[in-house]
Structures are given as C-alpha cells and as structure tokens.
Design a binder for these strands. Structure first.
Lengths: 380, 380
DNA sequence: ATGAAAGCGCTAACAG
DNA sequence: CTGTTAGCGCTTTCAT
C-alpha cells in the first residue's frame, strides 16, 4: 500500500496556492467554544473554584470530588488556557531567548542546552533571532516582555546600547547574558575565556613561524582597535581581538592591527569580497584566525576558489568545533567551546533566579580547548 | 581602554555558580508594579477605555487626547500586557512551529523562512523541537495550544499517530504540515517531490553502473518495505524509499530492499555502527544515498575512518545542499531542496488561514534539483 | 473541604 | 468622540 501516493488534489506550482479569493457564499465553519473550568465544574456538580483547584493542582479536594472533576475534564477534553493562568499568577512558565543568528550551529547547540534544562524544569522556550541587529534585539525583547516571560537569556548584539537590557532587569525580570558580557553591567553572565582562546590559537600560529596573521570576525558593527576606528561593540569580539593582538605583539609582530578584518552576519558575499581582497594583497597573510565556523567555512570556500592551498600557502584556525571541520581537506584546527554546557549553565542560572535566587550576579567563564588538526603549517 | 577586562568577581568553575543558598536575612528587592492602561488613563485624565483605544490602536480619538495619552504612556514607560490583550481578543499574534530536529540545518533554514514572513506580517514564532519523538510532539502541541497560538506549523514525526493533530484542526486552529504529508489527512501541506528526487538520484547511480546501492535514512521509527517489517511512519521517508526502489527495479536490480538502513535522530554512534556494519559486509554496496545532510556527514566521516575512498570505492549522494557539502574532498553530489522557500510558503498559507481563508486544503509540492559534484563515479 | 466573589489587564459592546 | 459596564478564564482571598 502506498497511502500518500493518491493525492486528491494538487497545486503543483507554489505560486498558485493560497490567497484564493472566497466567494461571499463560502460557508465559514463554526467551531465549538473551548471548554473551560466552568464547564467542567458544572458537569462535575461542583463550584468553579473547586474544579479549578483540582484542575490546577493546588488546594485540596476530597477523593470523591477529585475523581468527578477529573472524569468530567476528560470527558469534555478540557485543556487549560495557559494565557488566563499566566494572567492571574503572573508566571508564564516560559523563558525567552534572543540569539544573534539561529542558523549558526553555535547558537543551535546552545539553544538545545537551554531547551533541555528548561523542559526538565517545566519551562518552555520562546526563541527570537536578532540577526545581530540591535533594533531587532530591542523589539524582540519588547515582545517577550509583553508576553510576560519569566526570564530572559540574551546574546547582546552591542555593548554600547544596553538601555533596553537594563530596563528588563530594573523591571525585576531575571536576565542572563550568554557568550558575551556587557562592561559595567553586573548581571549573570556565561562566557568562555575568549581572550585566552584567541591568545593560544594565535601563539600556535606565531610558534609555527607566521608573522603575517589575519583575524577575521563576523560582526558587522565592530572595531576598537579596528582599522576604521569604530568601537568594538561585542565583548567576546573585543576579548578575542585583544588576545590576538597580545600574542602577535609578544611574538614581536609590528602593527598587527592592520590584519584585522570583518565580514557580516549572513552576508557571505561581503565576507567573500573581504577575504578575496585580503588575499590579493601582495603582502597577504600566511595565516588566518576565524571568529566562528560560518566565517571559517566561507574563508575555506574562498581560498579553494582562489586555489590557495591550506596549509601550504595559508594556515587556518577557527573558533567552534563545527561538525564539518573534521571532514574537509585538510581538516581544520579549531578552538573547541563547551557550547552545550554553556547553554545548560545559562538556563540553570536563569531558572534559579526565576525561583527566587537573589545571590549576587555570577560571572561564569568556561574553558576552551584547541583541537589540532591539519590546517596549520609553517609559512611558505 | 578595555572595559571588559576588569571583572570584579569570577566564578571560574561552572559548578560553583548558582544554587547559592540564601540566608533568611537576604533582602529580596521589591519591584514596581508594571504600569497598566489604567495608570496611563489617570495620568492623561481620560477614561480607561479611551486610553486603551489609543494605546491599542483601535477606535478613534481626538488629536488632543491622543497626544496626552501618548505622552503619559511614554512618561510612565507603559508596556502593553500581551497576555491580557490575547485573552480578550482570542488572538495571540503568535504561530507555533514544531520541527523534528532544530539542529539540522534543513529545519534551521525552514525556520528562517517561516520567521521572515511571520515577522513581516506582525506575527511571532514559538519554536518547539520534537526530536522526532511523537510523545514530545504531542506535549509540544499541547503547550502551544494552551498558549493559544493563532496557528501551527508541524513536521509530523509519525503518520500513524495523528489524533492530536486532528484534534487541533477540529478545534478550529489552522494547521499546516511541513516537509511531510499525512495520508488521509486533508490539511494544507508543503512538501517536495521526494519520490522523484530519490528516483532521479538513484537513477544517476544506476546509470553510473552501480548495482548494489544502499539507502540510509535518519528516522529511527521507520520501515514498511524496511527489512524489519515495521511500517514506514513518515511520508517523505516512504516516498523516498519508493522512489529509490523504483529506480533500482527499473535498473533490474533484484531485492533492493536489503540495502535499506536507518540511523536515528541525534544518534551519531548508532548511525556509525550501522554504516560500519553495512560496509563491512563482503558484498557491501558501491553507492549510498543519504536521506539528509547530517546522515551524509556521518557517513562521510565513517567512510573516512574506514579508509574507504569516495567515489573510488563508494559513491555518495545526499539530500539537502548543506553548506559544507561543497568543501569536502570530494565535494558531494546533493539533492537541492527549496527549503527557505518552503518555510516562507508554509507560513504564508498559515497566515492566510489565520486571516480567515477557507479555501480547500492546498497540497503544495516543490521541485528539487540534483547538484552534481564529485562524489559519484562508476563502481570499482 | 468547598463555595462565593473579587480581580488580573485588556478589549468590546453600548450608551451618551 | 468618549465614558460606563461587562466580561475573557483562571486563581485567590475569605467565608462557611
């Protein structure tokens, strides 16, 4: 048997579906009003309050009543209205998460960590994507707060614009920062030792003999030591840049700043142009440090297109041990971050807060680890 | 300046943070009650209803009143309580999405498509992950319905167990299926031509001369033609298997069913064992068709570990043009699906429904395309 | 243990 | 155009 094979009607072209104008005669089906505590109460012959007590699992009830109410609820297929419930209790059982780029597997893994502990603790997760855009972040926050989430986890897109985040904590809603800290903003934070990670990776490169090393970052709106003079807006980026520069200086490399470049989030074309330009310079770098795996993948592709061999002509190290990094030719050396654990940790802290923990803000720094593969060699 | 460098306190070990028991003396800060329409109304010297009208953007108001209310709202930093709003209107402005595996980039892309059109139409998205587990799917649905989402998008994990989905449509909440259809369940659906896709890819393999071709699928709970006799539970899987088998038979291959295998969602070890066993048979296949990119990646890794060269010893084709498939050695031939467009389409249909469209259910089939790279060659 | 009644913050009739 | 009055479905005193 092949049940799915017989379709009664097809709209083979996507563009032809939907939006079909209805004739005024169209019968609009009417649906049964959802069943409420009141309905259950009546059927179980008890008061609304009593029914609500057993349905909501609070307050006591006699065995007899409990049975009757439960039976009535099942018979009527009662489903509680979480909205109404949240309305009166003030708790929604939901935590809001705002990430920079949901398509980046880094965040995907973190979100799974968050979801796992959230669900284990009876919380739901509403996910929002800022696309590293501060305005999108603000509006996402607005919506989540409007929906009365019990707490928020945010990867702040910009450390210069934090009024909206401060407003959240001022309103008493727990907030925990993930992957990026905010200078002067003492709130629970879970990050990795970006500075050390960048320092170590860069040192590995200088030790291999490299003198012209580039750092390519994702974030569009960034820079402090950056060539164009704009301030670096994200803590992790800043720390990485600092670690990178320190390692370069320690190796006696002059003016390492000139090798710092940045692409953009979800802008492969822009990044490709940046890398192409970078590698087209006569004095091009012999090693590149990539700030995340999507950047690294794009660099990898670009180098491949330009027929620049890795690591013979240029060495590569990337942040984030993305799954594909071990199957490329050559497999790429990466900085492994405990992403899933970070997600779990950040959720645990948040849930503790939601449950009333008022300990001083925790600043949690997780260790990274360099996984050496075959994308690093001595400069040509 | 390096603002983030001076941390006032560190909890270097993740395990030492949070969960700090509070002394009973701990001062629990009290936060201001959030401002309501009433507060704004009083400050603006108008009635609650009037204030609500301008704040909610419905009904009319004189220019003077409008100004006063707006000013008061700003002064008080009024933020509407979406919960209360949803309560009375019955609409939450939110659509619920239940996907099989959020970490699979296939779903990641689809979700972005959904989010993009949702936001463009003023809707928010609540995302839930079923992990291809039917029970998780049911409970996710329960929660979303409880939160009174305006509509649902689901990639059903099992076509044999659809009572919960039917209950949703019976309650009048729009539901659109993504990537997988449900036999005998006439509801809006957006899928690709899985059967043709599998047929074409398999044919490409038989044309290259392969006679022993394996199909490796992700889903744990599957099989109809499957060796172990259990029924295939997901339409796309079934269609792909059928396309695969048809192409094999058409090439005169006897008993192609014996080459069908399945791993599991988020179970790399299991899959690796399956592939290892498959390739260890004396009469092992010379070509493999992978049902999605995470399966393909794992196969790729396993083959690499086993030192089985692609495509010299075994050819590989995978569903989904994941970003990494072009940088491996060799780059892998894939079946490209219009995932982002599917996400957009499914959201468009849903939003039309939410807005009252009562046209008959649309069954939308999108075309796929084979991208030929270098993982296919003649059998050894 | 159970019931009656009062709200949560907002929108939706219905008057004026 | 604006104010009054009811609720939405649930939880929560407060009696009984």
């Amino acid at each position: 048997m092949r049940p799915v094979s017989k379709k009664s009607y097809y709209y083979l072209d996507a563009l032809s579906t939907g939006n079909v104008e209805l004739s005024a005669m169209e019968k609009k089906p009417t649906y049964p009003r959802p069943v409420t505590v009141n309905d259950v109460a009546k059927r179980a012959q008890v008061s609304k309050a009593t029914a609500a007590r057993v349905l909501g699992g609070y307050g006591g009830a006699s065995e007899d009543v409990r049975r009757r109410v439960t039976a009535a609820a099942k018979a009527l297929d009662y489903k509680p209205n979480e909205l109404a419930r949240s309305m009166t209790t003030g708790k929604s059982g939901t935590i809001g998460v705002v990430v920079g780029d949901i398509e980046n597997s880094f965040f995907g893994l973190a979100v799974r960590g968050i979801s796992d502990v959230a669900h284990a603790n009876g919380f739901n997760v509403i996910l929002a994507n800022s696309g590293e855009n501060i305005e999108a972040e603000k509006s996402a926050l607005e919506v989540l707060v409007g929906k009365r989430v019990d707490g928020l986890i945010v990867t702040p897109a910009h450390s210069g614009d934090t009024a909206h985040l401060k407003a959240v904590v001022r309103s008493g809603r727990p907030l925990v920062l993930l992957d990026r800290s905010l200078p002067g903003f003492h709130v629970d934070t879970v990050v990795v030792d970006d500075r050390d990670a960048a320092f170590n990776a860069t040192s590995k490169l200088t030790e291999a003999g490299h003198r012209r090393i580039a750092y390519v970052s994702a974030v569009k709106a960034a820079a402090d030591h950056f060539p164009d003079g704009s301030p670096i807006a994200i803590s992790s980026v800043l720390e990485r840049v600092e670690g990178f520069l320190d390692a370069c200086r320690q190796a006696g490399i002059a003016d390492p700043e000139r090798w710092i470049r940045r692409g953009g989030t979800n802008e492969p074309d822009r990044l490709r142009a940046v890398v192409t330009a970078l590698m087209s310079e006569p004095d091009h770098p012999t090693a590149i440090l990539a700030s995340d795996s999507v950047i690294a993948l794009e660099i990898f592709k670009t180098l491949q297109i330009m027929k620049i061999p890795i690591p013979a002509a240029v060495s590569l190290i990337s942040f984030h041990d993305a799954d594909w990094t071990s199957v490329t030719n050559p497999p790429v050396t990466v900085i492994d971050q405990p992403i899933y654990a970070m997600g779990r940790k950040v959720a645990e802290i948040l849930i503790d807060r939601v449950n009333g923990d008022t300990a001083p803000a925790a600043f949690c720094v997780m260790k990274t680890r360099l996984i050496e593969r075959q994308s690093v060699a001595a400069p040509p």
